[in-house]
Design a protein around this nucleic acid. Sequence first.
DNA 1: CTGGTCTCCTGATCGC
DNA 2: TGCGATCAGGAGACCA
Length: 293
Amino acid sequence: MPELPEVERVRLSLAHRLLGQRIASVTLHRPDIVTGDRSDAALLANQTVTDIRRHGKQLAILSNTGRCLCIHLGMTGSLCYHAPTSNTPVNHRHVIWTLDSGDRFEFRDPRRFGGIWTFNTFDTLTQHRWSTLGPDALNITLTQPNTTATLAHALQQTSRPIKSALLDQSIVAGLGNIYVDELLFLCRVHPLTPAHRLRPDLLPLLIHHMQALLARAIDAGGSTLRDYVDAEGHSGGFQNSHQVYGRAGSPCLTCATPLRSKALQGRTTVWCPNCQPKRPSHQGPPPAGSSTM
DNA sequence: CTGGTCTCCTGATCGC
DNA sequence: TGCGATCAGGAGACCA
């Protein structure tokens, strides 16, 4: 479920509750979801939370000792904060952290596609596990030409469909099935367009729409399709703003053409055959005098 | 290198 | 009411 906007909402809501709090104890119900050192210390027992960071869809919880936990929510993972008295679902709670205050936060993950990785330092995490990730989707901006160039280069290197390339976390970290479909619709790009055939002058448009889309999704609290909630239990509202995701067969909100869908890489892909033709008009030769990158 | 398929799991939903 | 088939937001392994 969680893609970048949802994970960012979890980060913000968790930080609001957790920063400066000391973890009194940790209960590990399912050791196999933790990779690396599974000791209480590695899971931050008796430590104070100093920072919560995010890269793509992954979170890092840092403590005053320098240790850190990397948490990946997978499809159904959630990190929820609870007061001592709250009664919440007790199944699939794999790890429970109890704070000095008595409050607790829990990692639940019914499908167990998510997981937790322990590291002695945040640098170790960034140099190993996170080193294979591309730039964070929120950090690719037109005002930082190097981030734009990195993405442009990665896309030029592959003939895979643009949809597959954008889902690849080593090219850009944070996009998932929902937001890639939404982004390609906004850019009027057909999802099967070979990445290296994307016209260079479309890249600024792609980046512009990516930033705007993610920002709007974060503002709306993310997308809740089934059971996504942030650390304080709040659902998202952005699912009501989806233009194409989940709307296969329904009329395009722009031109009323029925939206098409097809499995690509095993993921349902939805697009408008009229707004996103195989050869969009704006993928023809650029107007004279237009800039290229 | 590529896409397609399968896999890890559970649960919601739909048609019969 | 029950039952099986189908489908999910992620991601890595494997095969052709």
